[in-house]
Nucleic acid binder design. Structure first.
Lengths: 253, 253
DNA sequence: GCCAATTTGTACGTATGTATA
DNA sequence: CTATACATACGTACAAATTGG
């Protein structure tokens, strides 16, 4: 079972780091055995014996792969193939945004441009893949937003689900995950962004317009509605960093 | 200097892992001291003393942050703030692609759809930001491609530079980095993709058409040229996995 | 609920490789 | 070339979490 992993030759050409070699071996092991997310990996002790490295090196290699969600470790249970999510992208981009947040929101502005480009560009595909359940689903979320806004409450989770539901019928898992990732980054870097009463109403109306355009099956109208949706977001980002979010301690958690 | 980092209280609410706490402290240290990529971080020994953790925990935390390019370690020199690149996204997506490659190219097909959506969606902005140096730059790369193709050689690096140069004038660093990242993922998962003589010629012509459309300042024509550019790519992906690339050992390196 | 086995997490000491002065 | 500072690797011991009897 572990025969596929061969010990590392000390003098193997490139004098690279031990942990890198080990990480490569583990990736190869997953690929060659065609493992899937959730499948069990050898224990640390077995890996040490298999690749001929110390436990420290094996653990540091595992740490790297864990950060990329290639492997997943459960304390006291074992090591498994990870879900290969985009958590690494979220953490990396979020930290970049937090670093530049004090100066300006350039990173976030760029992110919004990417989000808008993707959503508008996929508008034709969205109307083509339209579905009754999707129509009603989007409508319900928009209704919930209006309700919550009327009560003076926020609707961050509804907003996230709305944009994910919009992308879901495309059947493109990467698009869905990128949408979620970008939304999460935005939420981490500027969580309390549009909370003024006016922009809340503006946002509710924008989502309504998107629902109606999608229901009408008009791609151009949908594209325009999406563009309008991001107008208040862009405006807040240009107003400067004084809107601010929580302190660094909580933001990175 | 290190006073900002406070020791970790054992009983601080969530009974989380040591290394996670340490990683958070390091991130906070970077944020609170407003460090920039390349700035020096305390040595491992100093970090140990500052957060009250052992070398093992500190090193594992650093490993996690290194994978996200939040910190960068130079052997025998020290630890520094990382460049915050998208290497983590590349590694993660590339491995996902390699995992599914044996079965199909679904992941890669999804990636191409995202690339095409972004490039087409930004076509209007590109023609708006057009520049003489950009025009000539794109033209030169296209010429090089044609030359190399005539000699029966490949032009992977030219292809990469072409698409990066196309995005550069937008001034959106995230778009540029995402373009590079997606291209790299594609190159890792399917490096020897379009090498049949016909598709090579097709690709050369496609890039020519993009240059001409951009030079003409016609956004719709540019969008169409980009769409045409991806047609042969999509075709190869649909043809199935038998085109194959290198074995797993080299692919993950 | 308790105990024991397995597995990962943390700590510490030591030696080695690497870069700088 | 020597000395110093630092990261890397190895090994051992123990703590914490999970599972099963």
């Amino acid at each position: 079972m572990l025969a596929v992993i061969e010990p590392i030759s000390r003098q193997s050409g490139g004098a690279r780091l031990r942990q890198h070699e080990v990480a490569e071996r583990i990736k190869q092991y997953i690929l060659q055995n065609r493992l899937r997310p959730g499948d069990a990996l050898p224990t640390e002790a077995e890996l040490c014996a298999a690749v001929g490295a110390s436990r420290s090196s094996v653990r540091e290699a595992i740490k790297t792969l864990t950060a990329l969600d290639i492997v997943e470790v459960r304390h006291g249970h074992g090591t498994y193939v990870g879900r290969l999510s985009l958590t690494a992208l979220v953490e990396s981009l979020a930290f970049r945004g937090l670093l530049s947040r004090a100066d300006d929101f350039r990173v976030l502005a760029e992110l919004v441009e990417v989000r808008q480009t993707i959503e508008q560009g996929l508008a034709p595909s969205i109307v083509a893949a339209l579905d009754d359940s999707l129509r009603t689903g989007l409508g319900e979320i928009a209704d919930q937003m209006a309700e919550l806004a009327a009560r003076g409450e926020t609707f961050v989770e509804q907003d996230r689900r709305f944009h994910l539901l919009l992308m879901e019928p495309l059947g493109n898992e990467l698009v869905t995950q990128l949408t979620a990732a970008f939304w999460d980054v935005h939420a981490i870097v500027a969580p309390t962004m549009h909370t003024t009463p006016e922009s809340v109403q503006e946002t509710v109306q924008a989502h309504r317009a998107i629902v109606e355009a999608a229901a009408a099956g008009d791609a151009d109208r949908l594209s325009a509605a999406i563009a309008a949706h991001y107008v208040p977001v862009r405006r807040h980002l240009q107003e400067g960093p004084e809107v601010s979010g929580p302190d660094a301690e909580e933001a990175t958690a």
